[in-house]
């Protein structure tokens, strides 16, 4: 049986995917744009983000192939990525030549 698609990666360089429906803790979902399954750690509402690669503390969170924020703690695969573990960019981040992790554009 074909596995249902639970989340969508907006760009192949992203380390997060967007839940297309409410994801339940413990279920394994397939992700459009990525091979293999990802196990959901805790429930994630639709429209919210799930980590599809491990993101270390102070690394970039990448969505749309762009840096949308900085992880404030290490986020393992399958975890909810939101305000509790991500902060927005400050001036220094934007002017910095390189930030740790992610893909420089």
């Amino acid at each position: 049986m074909e596995q249902k698609i639970g989340a969508l990666m907006l760009n192949s360089m992203d380390n997060v995917a967007v839940a297309l429906e409410n994801l339940k803790a413990g279920e394994s979902i397939s992700i459009q744009g990525k091979e293999g399954l990802v196990k959901v750690f805790k429930s994630i509402p639709y429209g919210h983000k799930i980590a599809v690669h491990p993101i270390l503390k102070d690394e970039k969170v990448i969505k749309y192939g762009e840096c949308m924020g900085i992880a404030t703690e290490t986020i393992p695969v399958g975890h909810h990525v939101h305000v509790s573990n991500v902060r927005g960019l400050n001036k220094e981040d934007k002017t910095a030549v390189t930030l740790k992790g992610g893909v420089e554009k």
Binding site: V18, A19, P45, Y46, G47, H48, K49, V61, K63, Y64, E66, C67, M68, G69, V81, H82, V83, V86, R87, G88, L89
Partner: peptide
Amino acid sequence: KVGGLTTLEEKSL
């Protein structure tokens, strides 16, 4: 934020 947007950068992107 309830809808899942975390940062200003993400919303504007």
